[in-house]
Amino acid sequence: MILRPALLLVLVATLSACGGTVERYATGAPVVEEELPRISSRYRTVEVRQMSLPTYAASEEIATRDETGAIVSDKTTLWADEPARAMTLELSRYLGTITGAQVAAEPWPFLDRASVIIDVRVEEMVADADGAFRISGQYYVAPDSGNGGRSGLFSLAEPIRGEGASAIAAARTAVTKDLAEQITRSGLR
C-alpha cells in the first residue's frame, strides 16, 4: 500500500520535469499620458464593464492567425493576466486619462452610481499573419438616465513592430488606446 503513493509521487515529479518553460507577457508599456489627446466628456463618472472576448482571445494563450487563416496558439507563450480583465483595466485607464472623468472597471467601487456604463463586445482579436494586431466588435454607451444611449462598431488594426510575443503585446496596448479614443469621440461627447 505504501508503495503506490510513492510511485504516484515519482510519476508526478517526472511529468512536471518534462514540461517546457512557460513565458508570460504583459502588455506593452502604457502610452505616456502626454501622448494621449484630451477630449471632454459629457459624463463625470464612467463604469467600464468587463470586455467580452471570443473564446480564443479570452484564453491566456496568445493567439495568432497563420497564412492559412487558422487561429493558433502555443501553450508555453501566455498573457501575464487574463486578457478580458487586463484590457478592461487598460481601457479604463485610457478613458480616464483622455476625458479627465472618474473612470473605473466594474464592479463600480464608489457609493454613488456611475453616470454612464460602457460595454465592449469584441468579435475578433488576433495577431494576423500580415503583421497587424486586429480587433473588431461593438461598444455600447448606456447613461444612468436611460436616455441618449449610443453604440458603435469598431475595426482597428495596429502594426506589430518587431518579432514575438512582446511585439504583439505592445500592439495590443496601442490598439486598446485607439479604442479608448474612438469610444470617447463617438460615445462620450
Rank of each mutant, 00 (worst) to 15 (best):
P107W: 13
Q50L: 14
R4W: 15
D74R: 04
Q138F: 07
T76M: 11
L78G: 07
G164K: 06
K177N: 02
P83W: 00
S155E: 12
V122K: 02
D178P: 02
D112N: 10
A105C: 12
R134N: 05
L11G: 12
A170D: 11
D81I: 10
D81T: 14
I39E: 05
Q50V: 15
Y43D: 06
N147K: 08
T21L: 11
G137A: 06
A127I: 02
A63Y: 03
K177C: 00
T27G: 05
A105V: 07
T68Y: 04
S136Y: 02
Y94R: 11
A70W: 09
I183M: 00
A114V: 09
L188T: 03
F110Y: 15
D178Y: 02
E61N: 12
V175C: 00
G148K: 09
D74E: 13
L8M: 11
S186Y: 02
D128K: 05
M87K: 05
R49Q: 14
A70Y: 07
S92W: 07
L7H: 04
D119F: 04
L78P: 07
S92D: 09
E163W: 11
T176M: 10
E35P: 01
E158S: 07
N147P: 06
Y94K: 05
S40Y: 04
F133G: 02
R150W: 04
E34M: 10
Y139N: 00
P5M: 11
R189K: 12
T184C: 07
A169K: 01
A26P: 00
T14W: 15
L89D: 13
I39S: 08
D112R: 12
D66Q: 01
T76H: 12
I62T: 04
A114R: 02
C18Q: 08
T14Q: 10
E82C: 06
Q102M: 15
F133V: 03
S59V: 05
P143E: 12
L179G: 02
S186A: 12
S52T: 14
A17T: 09
E47R: 09
G164T: 02
V126N: 03
T76G: 07
A84N: 05
V103N: 09
E60C: 00
T176A: 07
L53I: 06
Q182S: 00
Y140W: 15
D144I: 12
D119W: 02
L89N: 09
G187N: 00
L7D: 04
R150Q: 09
R121S: 11
A132L: 12
